[in-house]
Write a protein that binds this DNA or RNA. Structure first.
Lengths: 228, 228
DNA sequence: ATGATTTTCGGCACTCGGTGACGAATAGAG
DNA sequence: CTCTATTCGTCACCGAGTGCCGAAAATCAT
């Protein structure tokens, strides 16, 4: 095995949104992992912000995590997949929140509440969230990699709407709702990224309420932006 | 120069949605092009449907158009960019339709009309349209390449809404409308692709009207699908 | 016709992303 | 210590995408 750099040193950034250090049954059989998906993500995030996505090779990310190039591709299928962990878990959160939402709540209200609930972040996590989302929406290759993850979000919402309205999942209106909800959320994300002022959920709420009310001139003529 | 296969033979498919043969000022200076973007698109479409996207190399596409690999990348920046010509011109169509829409027409009605108007296809062109759109939404690499093209569509609508409602283009509601409109159209596309029955514009109209009316339970409880 | 100019094309070499195969390293279980 | 499970590293390979440069093929000027 080749010489490995110190993992702690390679991490550098002290912040971590999830714990994956203590998560080990201790009765694991084979050779212990030399790194983690989270560690690779942090290394990649740091390198991407420092020197750009395209200027960063997979070798550099792997080396920063003290591991070989081949091992990176055992954790992620592609270089552009490395920043989507948090988003994917958020989709799972929304899915379970929707599954447990009260049956008497109107469908779209349930969706709006689930989305807002899934988007409360600890203040310490906001800076990393910002850097990651800026990269994901700015760098073309990363924005392209969003498709499959967005699809999962959309299908989570579509499936819920279909269930609650007694329609097959592939029929038109559930599809429209799923896609439109994500579209509104992405617009809110963008607006929140551009400014640095208000809370993310304020924009999300405003965007989803506009969608619920209908995109007529009445709605469009509202105040230019929600109050911070 | 290497031996070239016959262009006519390589084209094979007789259908063409746009003419690019007679479009030549006749007083062009240098060496005439050995192929065209359209011809490469048709060759790629045929090969993708026959043997799959990932199983088709750029060499094969180029060879089918009677040209070298290097030349392919002078016409398209990437292998996945080869099927987006029609979509991009549709975006331009929508943009100009919106620019010329009557000022007294409600904003969202104008958007809906422009989208419907831009999606009338000649019956002869429908089969190719179907094959292309099925590939673009099915093959992961192609779906990923959609991001930049979708962005152009969204910004065309957002810019119009911002102009008409007197808001800056980056404010929340224009962004929401632009993204949500594309989302609804994509849902309609999917539904139309899945079935093979009705006209595309029927689904587009239904999806956009649902968006205008608001995604409340009243709308969601409508008939499962628009009548063909 | 001949040469200059302009435009497209082909070939070459190179980097990097991504994959399959295989043996080595490191742990616990017996 | 041996067996087994798991992760890792190395190597070899393919294809996408790019920069460079000279050749091909057309028009224009003389």
């Amino acid at each position: 095995m080749s010489p490995r750099v110190d993992n702690q040193d390679s991490r550098g950034n002290g912040t971590r949104m999830t714990d994956d250090v203590l998560a080990r049954p201790a009765n694991r059989r084979g050779r212990p992992p030399g790194t983690s998906a989270r560690e690779l993500e942090l290394a990649a995030l740091r390198l991407f912000t420092e020197q750009g996505f395209h200027e960063t090779t997979v070798d550099q990310i792997a080396a920063a995590a003290g591991v070989s190039r081949r091992t990176f591709f055992r954790y992620y299928d592609a270089k552009a997949d490395v920043l989507w962990n948090e988003f994917d878990t958020e989709v799972e959160t929304i899915r379970s929140l929707l599954a447990g939402s009260p049956p008497d709540l109107p469908v779209f209200d349930a969706v709006r509440r689930a989305v807002l609930e899934a988007n409360h972040y600890r203040a310490d996590d906001v800076p990393e969230l910002r850097r990651r989302m800026t990269l994901l929406s700015t760098v073309p290759d990363l924005a392209a990699s969003a498709a499959v993850h967005y699809d999962a979000w959309e299908r989570a919402v579509s499936a819920f709407v279909a269930r609650r309205s007694g329609q097959p999942e592939e029929s038109l209106y559930p599809l429209v709702v799923g896609r439109a909800v994500l579209a509104a959320c992405r617009a809110a994300y963008d607006r929140w990224s551009a400014r640095a002022d208000a809370d993310l959920t304020v924009y999300l709420d405003a965007a989803l309420r506009a969608l619920a009310a209908g995109l007529t001139d009445d709605v469009l003529g509202m105040e230019p932006d929600p109050v911070p």
